[in-house]
Design a protein around this nucleic acid. Structure first.
Lengths: 257, 257
DNA sequence: TCAATAGTGTCTTTTAGACATTATATG
DNA sequence: CATATAATGTCTAAAAGACACTATTGA
């Protein structure tokens, strides 16, 4: 922005201002249902990539800010307007050839939603388990949406470590076990219920106790305490996901020459 | 992107495609010089905000990807082309009224650079210590660049915790003390040299020993070992900055009703 | 009763923070 | 010599991971 013809003047056809570009928003909307991480996709009915599944998105209108545009894109496709409990900017993608129609720069957003009670409109919008999208064949997403989705999932995994946003996947009131299953689904690893409970219960401001108790499932079990989201937004200390050892020898001091 | 007239058709003047928008890139280029965090600013010579200092930026050209555009904006203003040791996307800003000339969406980038040997062109580009920009009066940045700068600084502080990017501020070869002073400058807190050494030396792949030794300063002192950046990109375990207690009572277990 | 889930406590290992001590330079 | 900086070691407290045990439900 904000740069007008100055020192290094532009010689091309776009001297003073850059040429014009289309700006869109796309939303990586994630939810956890049945211990599985899912993403909301819509089927494209027009070229390019007609028939392909894509992230819900829309053009940014004149006078419309980016985040409201993303919220509207999500509300239009998912049916429920207030679906997402959290919406944040993910990243912007602007490779020149990413859209065959011309130069289209998209600002991707990341949304966390509790599992929606009804399975969306069922028509041309659907929640997909991430496993369905991974295998070689599977579905091929339109444009560069597979890369955007991968970035969104990685961001979500990192966010759960340092922020309280795991609770954005839970329908209030929720139990500690429900929150733990969110972590397990997003990270794809099992967590020790007792250690997990210790961590979340010792983080001030993360959980607010709600009077009643949960009703056990058909297999029985002790009723669980219920909580609402607290005012805390960051986790201290963080809940770090189990690490696939990054570099070979752990704790090998240096031997300077 | 990628959304063509579908279910919720657009009624306004922009039916099929959105209206056209200018897209720019702006760079928050940071460096550490004399134990101080500094940012590169350029003086605007044209309206709007003529005479104000601003982040270096430029319009994105046809066929040009975003990151190369940011790299070029930085190279043009800072003189040195290969200045930055690291360049990453920060965030995109697109509030409708952020530029009086019309709708301009800017993709902000964050650059880390070793302290440049010469103080830039000196003409209309300068490195500013962050303290110079904080006080009430001080300099007022053009557009929403103050907010972008604040986001960039916060991102830099967070990055130092979990990534090896602190080394991007160091000129190779560097010593452990130089890297520590980078952390102290970016975080604005003093760190224990011994504990800091233990952390960075026990992180595999972070530092590569270089044969020689540093020459002590005029005040003497034992010569320090020298290092290059290693292949590691993430820090395990992280080097967490001292925390301003987020919520009142630390480690207060819950008392469910 | 048993099986299942919730919640608490204990032990060990790891890591962080504070700080003493030794090594090697300049003046 | 004194002073400054680098590098290593030691101690304590906090946190993580593994896991035993008790509590309360449904069948």
């Amino acid at each position: 922005m904000d740069r007008s013809g100055s020192p290094a003047a532009e010689p091309g056809s776009d001297t003073r201002h850059g040429f014009s570009t289309q700006v869109t928003v796309d939303v990586v909307a994630l939810t956890v249902r049945a211990d599985r991480l899912e993403v909301l996709l819509v089927r494209r009915d027009e070229p390019p990539h007609a028939g392909c599944w894509a992230l819900p998105g829309r053009f940014v209108r004149d006078g419309e800010d980016l985040e409201p545009a993303a919220a509207r894109a999500l509300a239009e496709k998912a049916g429920a307007p207030g679906l997402a409990a959290h919406l944040e900017q993910l990243r912007t993608y602007g490779a020149p050839e990413r859209d065959p129609r011309g130069r289209v720069v998209t600002v991707a957003y990341l949304a966390f939603a509790p599992a929606p009670p009804s399975v969306a409109g069922a028509l041309d919008a659907r929640w997909f388990g991430l496993a369905e999208l991974q295998p070689p064949g599977a579905h091929r997403l339109a444009f560069d949406h597979a890369a955007i989705l991968a970035d969104g999932v990685e961001r979500a995994r990192a966010k759960l470590e340092y922020s309280s946003l795991g609770t954005a996947f839970c329908t209030e009131p929720f139990t500690a076990a429900e929150l733990r299953r969110v972590y397990e689904a997003v990270w794809g690893v099992p967590l020790d219920p007792r250690n997990f409970w210790r961590k979340i219960s010792s983080t001030p401001g993360l959980l607010l106790a709600v009077p009643g108790r949960s009703i056990p499932g058909p297999t029985g079990g002790r009723p669980a305490a219920r909580f609402r989201r607290g005012p805390a937004t960051v986790l201290h200390p963080p809940i770090l996901r189990p690490q696939p050892d990054p570099y070979p020898p752990p704790h090998t001091p240096l031997s300077p020459a």
